[in-house]
């Protein structure tokens, strides 16, 4: 009794994708993600193209979450390694951007926890305690004077400093909202606090940034 099933070694004969002949760099994002998911391991060319397209998004998230970390590039590499390993698990390719943000955020939090364990809990000043976290409300003593013709670059430098000066819990919360576009509920889930705390932290972070950058925000930049 010898039964055999006809098996084809090549799946491309049976499932020819209409985008198969399109060069990787010309594929729309959705099809590019599908191409990365096509095999057991992502196609290297497709994956490199995907990385190129979304690299700035990952850089932006990590930059805002960890403005003073010198090894952000290593962290970014780690994000992409996780993407490479797990992209086949992504059920809905349209949600790739959010999924990627989540990977970067989770990795940041993993790393933050590790660093907190190692770092000494030394604090030179006692920040004011709020019911939704620590917040030092002192305005940085800088000598900036309002100038109507302030260059955009200078403004961004001020903004960058203001973000970096935010206490960590406030910075991460506002970044998850403004840079990653997460809903309050999602932020509450990631940061492990209540919706009310998320709402309050976002407002306080904005209040602080706004107060520090008021002269620029009123201008025409």
């Amino acid at each position: 009794m010898n039964q055999s099933l006809p098996l084809s070694w090549s799946t491309s004969e049976t499932t020819v994708s209409p985008t198969a002949s399109i060069p990787t760099e010309k594929l729309p994002n959705y099809d590019l993600i599908l191409r990365c998911q096509g095999e057991l391991r992502p196609d290297r060319v497709a994956f490199a193209e995907l990385l190129r397209r979304y690299q700035s998004h990952v850089d932006k998230i990590l930059y805002h979450l960890a403005p003073d970390w010198q090894d952000r590039a290593d962290l970014a590499q780690e994000v992409w390694i996780r993407v490479y390993r797990n992209i086949n698990r992504l059920q809905e390719p349209v949600k790739f951007r959010g999924w990627l943000s989540r990977i970067a955020t989770n990795l940041f939090y993993d790393e933050l926890r590790k660093r907190k364990r190692v770092a000494s809990p030394l604090s030179l000043d006692a920040p004011r305690m709020m019911d939704d976290g620590e917040m030092d409300w002192e305005i940085a003593a800088d000598d900036t004077s309002p100038e109507d013709d302030l260059a955009r670059r200078e403004f961004y430098e001020q903004l960058r400093d203001a973000i970096a000066d935010l206490p960590e819990v406030f910075r991460t919360t506002i970044v998850l909202r403004e840079i990653e576009g997460m809903a309050y509920e999602e932020i509450a889930e990631i940061t492990g606090v209540s919706l009310g705390t998320v709402k309050s932290r976002i407002a306080r972070a904005r209040q602080r940034l706004q107060s520090q950058l008021q002269t620029y925000l009123d201008g025409s930049l």
Binding site: D59, A76, Q210
Partner: peptide, 13 residues
């Protein structure tokens, strides 16, 4: 502020 946060240039990896 929101617009500036999103448009702020960021160093590339």
């Amino acid at each position: 502020l929101r617009q500036s946060l999103q448009a702020m240039p960021v160093p590339s990896s």
